[in-house]
Simulated assay, not measured.
Amino acid sequence: MCKGLECLSVTCLERAKVLKSLFGNLLHRPDLSIMGHSHKSEKTRVNMDEPTKWRESFDNLLSSQHGQCSFRAFLVSEFSEENLGFYLACEEYRDTKESKLSVKAKKIYDKFICCDAPREVNLDHETRSITKTNLEHPTPSCFDLAQEKIYTLMEKDCYPRYLKSPSYLELTRQVRAG
């Protein structure tokens, strides 16, 4: 069991390993090569226009599997990957069968929203309260307000920083050089 700063450094090391894994794979694996030199199917490679499209809108970034991977790696480096995790969990939740809504909603709430949640997202008290009330009778839209708040937070705060980050700038530089 770790204590104090020792625990913090272990967590930082774990996050650094995740970041290296996520972003390193995007740039260096032949099957994910941004330059397109691969014998794998087209679906596994980053299209050369993709990083440029990510700059056009946050929706373009999130609609791209490789964009999500790159953005998640950036969020890991900023210690805020829970935001994307929550957003994606809500997207998946909307497609949940009605019979499983209650169980899945509770898992999302316990993981991301309740006080002291392991991956707690930054929500105001009112949104947190409304979401908790929504869970009394779960529907596919019970997380919509909370998801919208987190989306806006990422779009207005994290996304602009991502576009200025060394990782994104290197990715676009490689595309231009290719």
Rank of each mutant, 00 (worst) to 15 (best):
F86C: 13
N83V: 06
S99R: 15
S57K: 06
K107Y: 03
V46I: 15
N83G: 12
K40H: 14
C69D: 02
T96P: 01
H28L: 15
H125I: 07
H39N: 11
T52Q: 09
Q65K: 02
V121S: 14
L101R: 11
N25C: 13
K20R: 11
R72E: 14
K20E: 01
G24F: 00
C90H: 04
G36W: 11
L84I: 07
F23I: 11
L62S: 08
D49I: 07
E98C: 02
S99Q: 13
C114S: 08
L84P: 02
K104E: 15
S70C: 13
T52V: 10
M35E: 15
F74C: 05
L123E: 08
L84C: 03
Q65L: 02
P30L: 10
R29L: 15
F58K: 05
M35R: 13
S102V: 12
R55I: 12
Q65P: 03
V103Q: 12
S38E: 04
G67E: 04
F112K: 06
F58D: 08
G85I: 04
D95Y: 10
N25I: 02
L22Q: 15
V103H: 05
F74Q: 06
P30Q: 07
L88R: 00
T44A: 05
I108R: 10
V76W: 11
R45F: 04
K97M: 02
F74A: 08
V76Q: 14
S38D: 04
Q65N: 08
S77Q: 05
E56R: 11
F58C: 04
S41M: 13
M48Y: 02
H37K: 10
K43S: 10
G67Y: 05
P30I: 10
E56D: 03
S102N: 14
A73W: 05
E98H: 00
L26M: 12
K107W: 03
A89S: 15
S64K: 06
G67M: 06
F79I: 01
P51E: 03
I108G: 01
F71V: 08
L84M: 09
L26Q: 02
G85W: 06
E82L: 04
N47L: 15
K20H: 02
K104T: 10
N60D: 01
N25E: 09
